[in-house]
Design a protein around this nucleic acid. Structure first.
Length: 1013
RNA sequence: GGGACAUUAACUCAGUUGGUUUAGAGUGUUACCUUGACAGGGUAGAAGUCACUGGUUCGAAUCCAGUAUGUCCCA
């Protein structure tokens, strides 16, 4: 048969995948064998394969294929997730592009569009997995919104509702203003961003604000009882104003100076002569009666009070006004330009915020009761800048005295901590945002404008009004929506919650006691921490694409939960005692359930174990064996599946969880669409073959560690394919002769490799048992490349253009077959291709359903002996290289045994691989020869008396120096009495053996050096 | 701010209850080889104060404490 000189992955992979499918090898049915079950982490139904999927599914396929080859009934269930928020966002965008607004459609119409979209783009990712070689049981493909899964979700909701674990509550939730839905805490990504810290000045409000909530408190600020009196007084003063006052009034009235002034205006309980409210400027004109110490004192007091209220006060005498009006007006103009600057301390307090737009929702300012800097402010009030709402200064130990200015503004509607403080202090809550993140009419300003536009605008306005003290650069963490990547707005809303505190108990316990094992185990800590601090799960989403919450509201506002509308009606009748209720009287809750509320049932629901808990399949396949997933969904998914497992089946959902790393680029950046740093997995498969990519992905992906991907990896994988292919070509192209005897070296080589394989099988078993998949691949890789190709094939290779004996050939084919089986889980395609070509196969046979070699006894002493042989061959090669002796020129080799002796079992191998013309055993050292040592055995290669003595001596001395150094380190240990007395006997014995070996070698070296001199 | 994990060769990582030669692998690198399956090859070599400072111990990459740096999680 003609064998292609170059391996062609594309052709081979397509051929064998079809063959496996045609023979239904991936399909599993319950039988008497031990089951091995894996459920796929369901990818987004409309998604496409990315590098993370590649890694994840390669690992799953390796585990599944290996389990299948060890005689287990392997079942890998594939499927997809409806990805509520992501898919809905895509559909909304698509509709928008067509000029259709979601809210112009009915729920039913929208869902039709969503299903169209799902059918059009759905399942592509599963087809891509086939290219990778995934051996999923495609007949079992499930979808989180198909009939079985949907009914399971609804059943579970009703069940939890009836158990009293689901409740409806008004809570502060994470609001996604783009998707216009609530999110769970887990769907919020905190990102560190560079932002600004704005220092805002809040002016102290006059004390005792009037009752009744007048629109602008700064107008009428006196107590109501006093106010009427003051008002009369002011009126009187206006009527009897002095000449100077009248003159000045003529100049400032009617916006003559650009700002509106009032005269004889009441502020707090003071009547001032003139005031510009917008610039907070008070002008006092001293009448004749002011030249009086008592009055002067009173004026000072008045000024202080006004200053505290944030007013600037300037005074003129009657003379000044009457004689130099120009100067007076200029002073007033100057004061108007920068009125707040002269403000005395204590007239305001400064708070620091990153979100200046939220001041419109402020309902208090908070200080720490222990903060002496602000003790004079206790019980006072301040005015919210721009809108001049009077709010109280409250005290709470929550405030960090070190942070910012030590004063905190409280916006209960828009910050979770503020919300809690608000509850505690009974503060009103003003929600200034609409659902889409624009400002609501409650904000009073910027209504309908976007929150981020408003931030820019309000800062300018605050600055103009003199409320902005400074802006500092600041780095803080901001929550973003995992799906839509917009900034999350904390928002108070009515949502459905699942009580978690009881549910988590078995889930936590069974991970901590290793009934469920995490690989690597460090994720137990993360898990424990989360479980210990768990909050109730917000399971409602204001979305349509998903499972609609099966809660039905009655006309009186109460509700029932039921699997169907009919059952709901029955329940409602029962509940109300009103048998005349009809279906039209009930309204189903508009919200959908969180996507994870369906995926947490996945290991059960794929076998229909929720609807039909005792069916044969779920009883056979559940619990599943291993789960392979990325660590970023440990809370979203893994933890909740464990919770669901114990709650709904009273059993763990899987025995092992293998956490893969994140796939990153060479610069450690996460691979993402937006960065464009992610290669298309399908391009890679086309270029390097699925086997090459699988090997490349795994070569450097320790469990839990990140994988730094670059194209060198699949290239190396493809190189490995070539290597095996060429090994196969070599073997297959040998001419076999039954005439010739099996040479001794071939016999020895095969004996050695049989034992070697025993060791390899054992190593692989333990590596798989510990989920060291990468290491297992490395074991296979070096076995094939070094042991099989580099040593075995070199040893049995017949001379050029000579045939090979039939015995050796048959043995090599058998060993090759075993190696291929060990490789198959990693590289399914090329191993199948070679396996099919290696021997005659019947129709319907396949390596994928063959048995993997089992652990057998092997002779580890023989392996150790062979390691010495390898060293001896290396020694010959090294000397050949140094002395520039071509391999085709045969050389002689003499062996002088040392104290320990040298095992001669493999001498024929040394002869063959060293191209030795004659191997002699000697008792004396050989003069004029190049030498090397393995342990205490001397090897000599006579060089017709031509040898560089200097060079040889130099090398011998180096070797001697190293060995002596080593001996000293061993002796140091042994001469330490405390070591000899305290260390275990075996350790001491080992050290003594080391010492003996080293001493023997030194003796040999010294003799050799002496004889050369 | 709280916590977890990490730090070993140029890079990515192993290193099991402390004792496996004077710490290993893969990649890379250097030199050489090449009409013999394989230049996507072969052979050989170089490369590390095991982050730092102390401590425990007969003995520390390994255990403990602290420091530094980094990554992740939570708030």
């Amino acid at each position: 048969m003609e064998i292609a000189s170059k391996y062609n992955p594309a052709e081979v992979e397509e051929k064998w995948y079809k063959y496996w499918m045609d023979n239904n090898y991936f399909h599993s049915e319950p039988d008497e064998r031990e089951p091995y079950t894996v459920v796929i982490p369901p990818p987004n139904v409309t998604g496409v394969l990315h590098m993370g999927h590649m890694l994840n599914n390669t690992i799953q396929d390796i585990l599944v294929r290996r389990a299948r080859m060890t005689g287990k009934n392997a079942c890998w269930v594939p499927g997809t997730d409806h990805a509520s928020i992501a898919t809905e966002a895509k559909v909304v965008n698509k509709l928008n592009a067509e000029g259709v607004d979601k809210y112009d459609l009915s729920r039913k119409e929208f869902l039709e569009h969503a299903w169209d979209w799902t059918h059009k783009h759905g399942g592509i990712i599963l087809e891509q997995l086939k290219k990778l070689g995934a051996s999923c049981d495609w007949e079992r493909t499930a979808f989180t919104m198909d009939e079985v899964r949907s009914e399971s979700v609804i059943k579970v909701f009703v069940d939890l509702f009836n158990k009293g674990l689901v409740y409806r509550g008004v809570r502060m939730v994470n609001w996604d203003p783009s998707a216009k839905t609530a999110l769970s805490d887990e769907e919020v990504i905190h990102k560190e961003i560079k932002s600004k810290l704005y220092y805002l000045k809040y002016r102290l409000a006059p004390l005792n604000p009037p009752e009744g909530g007048e629109k602008n408190p700064s107008y009428k600020t006196a107590r109501k009882s006093e106010y009427e009196l003051l008002k009369k007084n002011a009126k009187r003063l206006r009527r009897f104003s002095t000449e100077a006052e009248s003159a000045l009034w003529e100049m400032v009235r009617a916006n003559n100076l650009g700002d509106k002034f009032r005269r004889q205006h009441i502020i707090n309980n003071i009547i001032v002569d003139f005031v510009c409210l917008s610039k907070k400027l008070v002008i006092e004109v001293d009448g004749g009666y002011h030249n009086n110490p008592e009055i002067e004192e009173l004026d000072k007091l008045k000024t202080n009070i006004l200053n505290e209220l944030g007013y600037k006060v300037i005074r003129f005498t009657n003379e000044e006004v009457l004689t130099s009006m120009d100067t007076v007006l200029q002073s007033i103009r100057d004061a108007l330009v920068s009125p707040p600057t002269g403000e005395p301390e204590g007239a305001f307090i400064t708070i620091a915020t990153t979100r200046p737009e939220t001041i419109l929702g402020d309902t208090a300012v908070c200080i720490n009761p222990a903060d002496e800097r602000f003790s004079h402010l206790k019980g006072k009030r301040v005015l919210v800048p721009l809108i001049n709402r009077s709010i109280p200064i409250i005290e709470d130990a929550y405030v960090d005295m070190e942070f910012g200015t030590g004063c905190l503004k409280i916006t209960p509607a828009h910050d979770i901590h503020d919300y809690e403080i608000g509850m505690k202090h009974n503060l009103p809550s003003i929600d200034i945002f609409n659902d889409d993140g624009t400002l609501s009419d409650k904000a009073g300003m910027y209504v309908g404008e976007d929150r981020f536009d408003v931030r820019e605008k309000i800062v300018k306005e605050l600055e103009a009004a003199g409320n902005l003290e400074k802006i500092e650069d600041y780095t803080n963490k901001v929550g973003y929506s995992e799906r839509t990547d917009v900034v999350i707005e904390p928002k108070l809303s009515a949502q459905w919650f699942l009580k978690m505190d009881e549910l988590v108990k078995p889930a936590l316990e069974n991970v901590m006691n290793d009934n469920i094992q995490f690989h690597p185990a460090k994720f137990k800590n993360t898990y424990k921490h989360w479980m210990g601090n768990i909050k109730d799960w917000c399971i409602s989403r204001q979305l349509w694409w998903g499972h609609q919450i099966p809660v039905y509201y009655l006309p009186d506002g109460t509700f029932v939960a039921a699997e169907t509308a009919e059952q709901a009606l029955e329940l409602a009748k029962e509940k109300t005692g009103n048998s005349s209720l009809t279906a039209d009287d009930l309204t189903q809750d508009e919200d959908a359930l969180d996507t994870w509320f369906s995926s947490w049932l996945w290991p059960i629901s794929v076998f229909d174990g929720i609807r039909d808990p005792e069916n044969r399949e779920v009883n056979y396949y559940y619990p599943s064996s291993d789960l392979v997933t990325a660590p970023d969904i440990i809370f979203f998914w893994v933890a909740r599946m464990i919770i669901a497992g114990y709650e709904f089946r009273n059993e763990l959902p899987f025995k092992n969880v293998y956490f893969t790393g994140m796939v990153r680029d060479e610069q450690r950046r996460k691979m993402s669409k937006s960065l464009g740093n992610s290669p298309d997995p399908l391009d890679l498969i086309e270029k390097y073959g699925a086997d090459g990519v699988r090997v490349g992905m795994l070569l450097c992906s320790p469990a839990g560690g990140d994988l730094l991907f670059d194209e060198g990896l699949p290239q190396q994988g493809a190189g490995f394919s070539t290597k095996i292919w060429n090994a196969f070509r070599l073997v297959k192209n040998w001419e076999v002769s039954s005439e010739i005897e099996q040479p001794e070296h071939s016999k020895q080589a095969i004996e050695w490799f049989r034992n070697k394989l025993g060791e390899v099988v054992e190593t692989l078993d333990s590596q798989f048992a510990n989920f060291k998949i990468s290491e297992a691949l490395m074991t296979v890789y070096t076995t094939v490349r070094d042991e099989f190709s580099g040593w075995l094939l070199e040893m049995v290779k017949p001379p050029y253009q000579k045939p090979i004996d039939a015995k050796t050939y048959a043995d090599v084919v058998d060993l090759f077959d075993q190696v291929l089986r060990l490789m198959h889980p990693f590289m399914p395609f090329i191993t199948e291709e070679i396996w099919q070509l290696l021997s005659e196969r019947e129709e319907g046979e396949s390596i994928m359903i063959s048995q993997i070699p089992k652990v057998k006894k092997y002779d580890s002493e023989l392996l150790a002996t062979f390691d010495d042989v390898k060293e001896a061959v290396s020694g010959v090669r090294k000397i050949r290289k140094e002395k520039n002796i071509a391999f085709k020129d045969a050389i002689e080799l003499s062996v002088q045994k040392g104290d320990k002796g040298f095992d001669e079992t493999f001498n024929s191998v040394i002869i063959k691989l060293g191209n030795i013309s004659k191997l002699t055993l000697v008792n004396e050292e050989v003069k004029g020869a190049a030498s090397f040592r393995v342990k205490s055995t001397n090897f000599y290669i006579p060089l017709d008396g031509f040898i560089d003595v200097e060079e040889e001596l130099k090398k011998l001395n180096e070797e001697l120096k190293y060995t002596k150094g080593f001996l000293i380190s061993v002796q140091k240990k042994l001469s330490n009495e405390r070591f000899v007395n305290n260390a275990p006997e075996a350790v001491v014995a080992k050290e003594k053996a080391k010492q003996a070996d080293a001493e023997a070698k030194i003796k040999v070296l010294e003799e050799r050096i002496a004889s050369m001199k």
